[in-house]
Amino acid sequence: MRTYFPPQLLNPAQQTGRWAVRDIDDDQVLYTTNLGSYLRCRVTGSHQLILTVANHHSDLGTGQVYALRVDGNLWRRFPARQEKITVPLTPAPHIIEIMAAGNTDLDEVWTGKQGFAIRSLAVDDAGILTAAPTRLVIDFIGDSITAGCWVAGRHAAADYRPESNYAATCADLVNTDSVRIAYSAGGVLRPATGGVPVASKFLRWIDRDTPWTPNHPQLVVVNLGVNDRRYPVNQFVTTYDRFIRQVTTTFPAAPIVLMIPFSQHFKNEITTIGHRHQLRVIDTANWCPSYTDGLHPNQAGATIAGQHLARVIAPYLGKKV
């Protein structure tokens, strides 16, 4: 077998997530703390692809999940406890996408090294793995809704669907890559789960010890606010405004659009702040017709919301939907 280790995988991964090469328990891995981060590559001349992962998760949790698809077909999901995942191929060229697709709020991703960890990819001796052709990139900044939690039901990890939530649906429709910067329960005022701090802190860090060098997306979409709904309005306004200034400084060359949360929390405040910064504000009223729990879109709602968003942002990318 021809085996590709984390340093060789880092370059293909930079377009599609917040990844870093880390040494965890004397094990070198390609590491991310973000649901929805994925690795997109091209495999040629191999009858199989073998993905080897490390299942670093809370002892109280259910373990992590990966999703994988070949040539844009249906996603298949695999528990990380398998550690080795074998995917049959033909020797023809194939585009492979491997996504961090399920974890739990109990996983200490920020301070406990319990993020997603890829050890290697392997192909036949005659096979070759290269980066997939580059595409335009969208950065999605948000919370559990953007990360892809609770789409298929109420079971953590097993029912998460970052591969088919509104952000993934949108990116597929406009044929772009995407980088997810989103954590469950997080906001501009409320820290996220897994030890993750507020958005102003997690924007530039993958975890407590791993800074992230911002990429160069063609568009940035911000969907935050719903988890801050129990804080005073004036406190939200001040902090959200400061965070948007931080986003514009972090991505000076990219158009930035602000989404009103599907729940419509802070609609007036976000609209005012967006206009103050001369940014497009996307009204999402009636975008999501169905939810898993009254807050998180279910699969039907996520698909429709993603279709709406794709139509709105397509002109920024020179695309048609």
Rank of each mutant, 00 (worst) to 15 (best):
T33V: 05
Q14Y: 09
K113M: 12
R22N: 11
G142L: 09
Y31N: 06
T52F: 10
I128F: 03
I118R: 04
N34W: 02
V87L: 08
V29C: 05
I138N: 08
R22K: 15
E83F: 04
T104S: 15
I118K: 00
I85L: 04
G127D: 03
P88R: 10
P12S: 12
N34E: 07
Q15C: 13
C41T: 11
L9P: 09
W75I: 06
R119D: 00
F140E: 00
A80H: 03
E108T: 02
L74A: 15
P79T: 05
Q15F: 10
Y66F: 13
S120A: 03
D139P: 05
T44G: 05
I50Q: 14
D27G: 02
I128Y: 05
I24E: 14
Q64K: 15
T86P: 00
V43D: 05
G63T: 07
L121W: 03
A117C: 09
G142K: 12
A67R: 06
E108H: 13
P79S: 08
A80I: 00
T52I: 04
I138M: 12
G72D: 04
G45W: 02
G17D: 11
L10C: 11
T52A: 10
A101C: 01
A54Q: 07
V43Y: 05
T44I: 13
L136Q: 15
P133M: 07
R76L: 11
T62W: 09
G45E: 03
L9S: 12
I24M: 11
T62L: 14
V65E: 11
E108Y: 06
S58C: 05
Q64F: 05
T111A: 06
T90Q: 04
A100N: 11
I141T: 11
L49A: 08
L30K: 04
A122W: 06
D139M: 07
A54C: 09
